[in-house]
Write a protein that binds this DNA or RNA. Sequence first.
DNA 1: CTTTTTTTGTACTGCTTCGCATAAAATTCT
DNA 2: AGAATTTTATGCGAAGCAGTACAAAAAAAG
Lengths: 208, 208
Amino acid sequence: MRSSTKKVSRRVGRPRAYDPDAAVGRMTEVFREVGFARASLDEIAQATGMNRPSLYAAFGDKKAMYFRAIDHFSAEMRARVERALADDDLGRSLAGFFAAALELYRAGGDTPPSCLVLCTAPAEAADDADIRARLGQTLAEIDGVFVGRLQRARAAGTLRPDADPEQLGLLLAATLHSVALRARAGQPQAQIDALVAGAVALVLGPRA
Amino acid sequence: MRSSTKKVSRRVGRPRAYDPDAAVGRMTEVFREVGFARASLDEIAQATGMNRPSLYAAFGDKKAMYFRAIDHFSAEMRARVERALADDDLGRSLAGFFAAALELYRAGGDTPPSCLVLCTAPAEAADDADIRARLGQTLAEIDGVFVGRLQRARAAGTLRPDADPEQLGLLLAATLHSVALRARAGQPQAQIDALVAGAVALVLGPRA
DNA sequence: CTTTTTTTGTACTGCTTCGCATAAAATTCT
DNA sequence: AGAATTTTATGCGAAGCAGTACAAAAAAAG
C-alpha cells in the first residue's frame, strides 16, 4: 500500500481533516470532565473539531466513544506508572506510583479531573452492565498491579517478613481509589499526600 | 394548630396525596441507581407517585432534590453505623461499621446501588461546584468519623501504642471509599470482606 | 476529463428534558 | 352556599439530545 515515492500514498477519497489520536485525547478530556451521561455529542464534536457524522464514522456510537476514552486514559495511566513500578526500592516504587498517578489526575483543568474510570463510571454502573463490567476490570487491574508488585518484593526479599502481599496490595488499591475521589473533590495536595505517605509507611513497616 | 378533637386539624386546601418522607426515600433510590444527570423528573415522578409540579412545590428544582436525597442517604448511613461506633471493642466496632455500611450499600436492588454520594457525586463534581463541595464534606465527615473513633480508642487505652490515629483513620476512610466502588462494580461479598478484614487487622496490629 | 471513493458539512428526525401555566379538584372557613 | 386556599392533573414551550440522510467537497485512479 505504501509507495516508494516521496509522497505518502493515499487511498482515494477526501483526506481526513482530523488526527484520530488527537481526537481521542480531546474526547477523553470531555468525558473525564463531565462524565458519560452529561457529555453531549455537540460538546465532543466541538472539542475534537469534528462533525457528528465524522465522530460516528470514526468511533461508533456514544458508548463506544466512552470506551475508547477509557482505553486511552488507562493506557496513559499505565505508561505513567510503569517506571515507578520497575523501581527495585519498594518505598520509592510505591511513592513514585502515587506521585505519577496524582500528576495525571491533576492534569487537564483548574479543578482536578482525576480518574476517568473511578470518578465517572460508577454513576453509570448500576444501570449499564457493560460499564459496570469495565469498572470491575479496572478495579481488578489495580488490585493486580499492587498485589503483583508486593509479591515481587516478597520474592526479592525486600518485603518485611510479616507482611501479607494480598492484604497490603488491596489496601494500596483502596488508597488509590480514595486518592482519585479526593482529587476530584478538590482536596488539597498536602491532605492527599498524607494519606499516601501513611499507606506507604504501613507497607514498609517500622524503620529498622 | 393541633386540636384536641379526634380528627387532625388541617389548613384549608386540597389534602396532599403523598407522604413527604416516603417520597424522599423513593427519590433517593432513583438518584442512587442512575445518578444525577441520568435521573429524569419523569422517573422521579413515577417513583414517588407525584406529578412534576408537586415535586417542584415540595422539593424545589432537580438539584435541590438531589441534595435532599444526599441528606436522606447520609442520615440513613449515620443511623446504621451509630451502634457500631459506640462499641467499646475496637475490632468489633470497626468490623460492625463496615458490615452496617455494606448492608446499606447492598440494599435496594439486584445490583448493589452502593453509596449515593461516593458513586454518583464524583461524576458531577468537576463541573458543578456545589456538588463538588458536598462531596468534599462527605469525604471530610468520613475522615472525621474514623479518626475520631481511633482517638477515642487512644484515650481509652485500647489502641496499640505505636498506632497513629490520623494515619490509620485516613486508611479506614480509604477502605470505605474502596468498598463503595467495589460494591457498585458488583464485586463478590467475599472479596470486599477480605479488604475490610485486612484493614481492620492492620489497625488492631499483631495479636498479643 | 470522468469515475469512484471517502470525508465533510448541513440539516433533519423523532424523541426527551426541565420548568412552568392553568384549570379543576378537594378541603376549611365564614 | 360561596369564598379562599392548597394541591392535583394535564398540557405546554423552549431547548437539548443521539443518531441519520444526503449533497457537496476532495482526493486517487484510469
